[in-house]
Design a protein around this nucleic acid. Structure first.
Length: 389
DNA sequence: TCTGGGGTCCTAGGACCC
DNA sequence: TCTGGGGTCCTAGGACCC
């Protein structure tokens, strides 16, 4: 059967939600990510009005302030964005049971075999745009193609409020019409590498053998490039996008060198992460700590134990033990991150011998605290050490 | 100019086992 | 004294995405 996919992308999502919720922001440059004066913030989303000044995602906020001092700056409200995201995603299920959400603001919709029920895919795409606009006030850009990979690239070509269809059979032609930096999966590093090796267009890649490409770019990137420019890249999305890791990190306004202060920050981050793990009913045996030094060099180390992390104290002591082994004294620290990998479902009971260390009591006290925090969002119960932050 | 936070996946090297 | 080949698992780091 002929495959048909849509890729739907919300336009300038966070900024658009702000303009929706604050009518006085409409038609004006809105920049989500931080307030002027936030030293190390970056732009999360810029409204199209702000993009005209050259502001874009991932740009350091200080640069945005220089380009567009009169913009409306907001830190952002993720809870609200998630709510709007759910509204939009639920509309998609009216057109197909197979919706694959790949981030807060985009999803694939599998329209394969739905023609008899819903009509031509291009008409379905138009209907979805209209329904999203009518029900949520937001606009989307859509790509339509025979593979998810092509649909994904197509959706970005006419933004905002765009619709781009690539007819079946035209996949390769489409890839060859694309500037090289539009190839999804080619980032800054590969782009530099391509330029250095004299590749300027997707056609330049297309005319080389797979052997040559892998000898220049390595096996992984080489075969990826070879297939991508032929439109051969099909992504098999597994059934369940399972959570594999969870992390929390903080960039400090100023670099830290005092070890007590750094360790207190680690406690803060670890506590936050453990709370999120708890609400998602996840547990882990693998804890990773990340240190970014003032010069942006980044190191990380992880430790796996037989027993899962039992409570905050356990979590903290694992983090600190990694930190003390890894940290090079007196170097300024700009970021600390903690991650838990290889997550397990915490409702699966533990073997008894892993549990009998007196940790049970601590864990149940913490569960009570978490329950209270969940019931009363806003209340945070923290160790005394964290109160003066 | 100075570079967030939350993720996923890949690769290369070392340990360990047969 | 000098040493195989294959497999698996773990770790650190890197690339990429939104």
């Amino acid at each position: 059967m002929d495959r048909v996919y849509l890729h739907v992308d919300l336009d300038a999502f966070f900024a658009s939600v702000e303009q929706l919720d604050h009518p006085e922001y409409r038609g004006k440059p809105v920049i989500v990510g931080g307030l002027p004066g936030d030293r190390r913030a970056v732009v999360s989303t810029a409204s199209y009005e702000a993009r005209r000044y050259g502001v874009h995602s991932a740009m350091p906020l200080v640069n945005a302030v220089k380009l567009c001092p009169n913009a409306i700056y907001v830190r952002g409200n993720h809870r609200r964005y998630s709510e709007k995201s759910r509204e939009v995603m639920s509309i998609f299920y009216g057109y197909s049971p197979t919706v694959i959400q790949i981030s807060i603001d985009e999803a694939f919709i599998d329209l394969t075999g739905t023609r008899r029920l819903f009509g031509e895919p291009i008409e379905v795409a138009r209907k979805i745009k209209a329904e999203v606009k009518e029900k949520t006030g937001l606009t989307v850009s859509i790509g339509l193609a025979s593979t998810m990979y092509i649909a994904k690239i197509a959706s970005a070509l006419k933004k905002p409020d765009g619709l781009t269809a690539v007819p079946p059979g035209d996949e390769e032609k489409f890839m060859l019409s694309l500037p090289i930096d539009r190839v999804w999966g080619v980032g800054t590093k590969t782009l530099e590498h391509l330029k250095a090796a004299g590749f300027r267009t997707t056609g330049d890649i297309h005319e080389k053998s797979i052997g040559l490409l892998t000898s220049i770019f390595g096996a992984g990137t080489g075969t990826f490039l070879y297939n991508a420019v032929r439109g051969n890249r099909e992504m098999e999305f597994g059934a369940e996008p399972k959570t594999r890791s969870m992390s929390s990190e903080t960039t400090f306004d100023f670099d830290l060198t005092d070890e007590y202060v750094i360790e207190t920050a680690i406690m803060n981050i670890a506590t936050d992460l453990l709370f999120r793990m708890h609400t998602e009913k996840l547990r882990t045996r693998t804890v990773m700590l990340k240190i970014r030094y003032e010069d942006f060099t980044t190191v990380s180390a992880q430790e796996t134990q037989d027993r899962p992390v039992m409570n905050a104290e356990d979590m903290f002591s694992r983090c600190i033990s990694i930190f003390r082994k890894k940290y090079e004294r007196n170097r300024g620290v700009r970021l600390i991150g903690v991650a838990c990998c290889n997550l397990e479902d915490s409702s699966v009971p533990l073997q008894q011998e892993l549990f009998d260390f007196g940790d049970g009591k601590k864990a149940s006290v913490e569960n009570a605290i978490y329950a209270m925090e969940q019931k009363n969002p806003g209340i945070k119960i923290r160790k005394a050490r964290l109160l003066n932050q």
